[in-house]
Design a binder for these strands. Structure first.
Ligand code: ZN
Length: 508
DNA sequence: CGCGTTTGACCCGCGC
DNA sequence: GCGCGGGTCAAACGCG
């Protein structure tokens, strides 16, 4: 019911995505955009549609999308749309007599239309792929960063954090993996990985896990992946296992999950709609008045699969009620429609990243600082990591002014050229929102993390603030990575599609 | 009648 | 131990 919600950016990013800066200019008029973005669903307006698509085609063609390009020429053959196009066309220009010319024109038109259709299909497919890829990319990137940090850590604090590191690593691996294959199968790979790299210490994770596991965590995680997760079900009581048995798949798995669940990713976006549509199905299970906020906070859980642990909180910003804050927690345990894919991968990627950073910090490491410093260079206000509070949180802020960094930065390989149509998207019925949502994305080109942790209160200061030169180097490298526009782009893309998604559009 | 939302009760962790 | 706040449960309710 609620998925149809107002704030939807569409995957238009895809187009932009493949395209380089250049391609961009083409599509720009905001309204148009929205139309074109939605080709899959919005068939109301044929003409616009056409136009838009054309653009899209062009773009893609010109751009580096090999497959698309190749395909492009083939077009004529398809006749799927014939009826549609034909009728449409005829209506449009019919009145005239049947001259040869006319006919010819008609034919051409039809052809074009067909082509167009094809392109649409292609586009869609590409879009799906894109979102996936971007998601993967993001996750990988995160993983990499994590690893680097990890390395740094090890250099800095060798023995102290051994266990933690191991855990981290494993965790990260798991996380990355998860993104790559959001499906149920992940469990397998995860466990494998774990076994391989497995180290005996996981205490920290377990502890955290245990903390909350009491009532919801364990049952939830058990039901997590109904089908393939069988092994896990073997343990009636996860807690016990966790504590005593270190190497069990179950264990690790759960710890990972737990950890992942702990991390949160919140997205701030302007929307008058009560909820942004992210491609998932949500069911409201609670609502509460938050203390500092006149607006209630709503709790949703993912209902796309039975045991899916993903939850989200939706709350309006107290100061600016046009800002909607959506906080995601957990990782989906089921395959997602392309539309939802981006969001899922992004959030989980962000979460994993966060965890990799904050986890150690939670354990007494300083990573947050590191991260903060690292990413700041390329910062605009896009993402903020906060390790404060009960759970680490990444905040993606889509509300800022659209001064996209993208402009400042030369587009290296492939940047996310979001059409920047600066309109505030607000209460517009579905379709248009897309274009506008994109505007938000533009600001996504920067990734900033700030640690707003004043400092963790009882933190054992194992780690010296000043980092060794080596680590500095590393951090620089990491910074580079993180700052890498590509990464940012990927993230941005992912996020955009996240918010984007169309309620009605899921295609295989 | 099934399904999703509402809403007060309840649980749990945390700080005093 | 108590109160508070965040989060969840689940019965009641409303809607298609
Ligand atoms: Zn889910």
């Amino acid at each position: 019911m609620d998925r149809g919600w107002g704030l939807t950016l569409d995957n238009s990013d895809q187009v932009g995505f493949f395209g380089n800066k250049a391609s961009f200019g083409v599509n720009l008029s905001p309204r148009r955009n929205s139309g074109f973005i939605m080709f899959p669903r919005g068939r109301e307006e044929q003409p616009e549609h056409r136009e838009v698509d054309f653009f899209a085609v062009k773009k893609e063609d010109s751009q580096a999308q090999p497959s698309a390009a190749t395909d492009f020429h083939v077009n004529t053959g398809l006749q799927l749309v014939t009826a549609n196009t034909g009728s449409d066309q005829s209506t449009v220009d019919d009145g005239v007599s049947y001259d040869g010319e006319d006919k010819r024109a008609k034919n051409e038109l039809a052809q074009l239309q067909i082509e167009l259709e094809r392109m649409n299909g292609e586009n869609q497919r590409l879009r799906g792929m894109l979102s996936q890829v971007s998601g993967n990319y993001a996750s990988l990137q995160m993983h990499l960063v994590t690893l680097m940090q990890h390395q740094q850590n090890s250099t800095t604090q060798e023995q102290e954090m051994d266990d933690k590191k191991c855990e981290d690593e494993r965790k990260e691996n798991g996380g990355a993996r998860q993104f790559l294959e959001l499906g149920p199968e992940q469990s397998n790979s995860l466990s494998e990985e774990r076994t391989v790299s497995g180290s005996p210490h996981q205490n920290n994770l377990e502890v955290t896990r245990n903390k909350r596991s009491g009532r919801e965590e364990s049952p939830e995680s058990e039901s997590w992946v109904p089908g393939s997760k069988a092994p896990r079900l073997n343990n009636p009581n996860p807690n016990i296992n966790t504590n005593t048995n270190t190497n069990t798949n179950t264990n690790t798995n759960q710890s990972i999950e737990a950890t992942m669940r702990k991390a949160r990713v919140s997205v701030r976006a302007r929307s008058e709609a009560p909820m942004i549509s992210d491609g998932c199905q949500w069911r409201k299970y609670g609502q509460k008045m938050a203390k500092g906020n006149p607006c209630p906070r709503a709790y949703y859980r993912c209902t796309m699969a039975v045991g899916c642990p993903v939850r989200k909180q939706v709350q309006r910003c107290a100061e600016d009620r046009t800002i909607l804050i959506t906080t995601y927690e957990g990782t989906h345990n089921h395959p997602l429609p392309p539309a939802a894919m981006a969001m899922a991968s992004t959030t989980s990627a962000a979460a994993s990243m966060l965890l990799s950073g904050s986890m150690p910090s939670a354990d007494g490491l300083m990573n947050p600082n590191f991260l903060a410093r690292t990413i700041l260079p390329c910062s605009s206000n896009m993402a903020t990591i906060s390790a404060s509070a009960p759970f680490p949180t990444v905040t993606l802020d889509l509300t800022q002014s659209p001064n996209a960094l993208q402009y400042q930065r030369p587009p290296p390989h492939f940047q996310v050229p979001f059409p920047v149509s600066a309109q505030n998207f607000a209460n517009q019925p579905a379709p248009q929102v897309f274009g506008q949502a994109l505007y938000n994305q533009s600001k996504f080109s920067g990734l900033q993390m700030s640690k707003d942790v004043n400092e963790l209160p009882g933190q054992p200061q194992a780690q010296p603030q000043p980092q060794p030169s080596f680590s500095d180097t590393l951090s620089a490298a990491t910074a580079a990575i993180t700052a890498d526009p590509n990464f940012t782009a990927a993230l941005a893309a992912a996020i955009s599609s996240i918010i984007a998604n169309t309620p009605n559009n899921n295609q295989p």
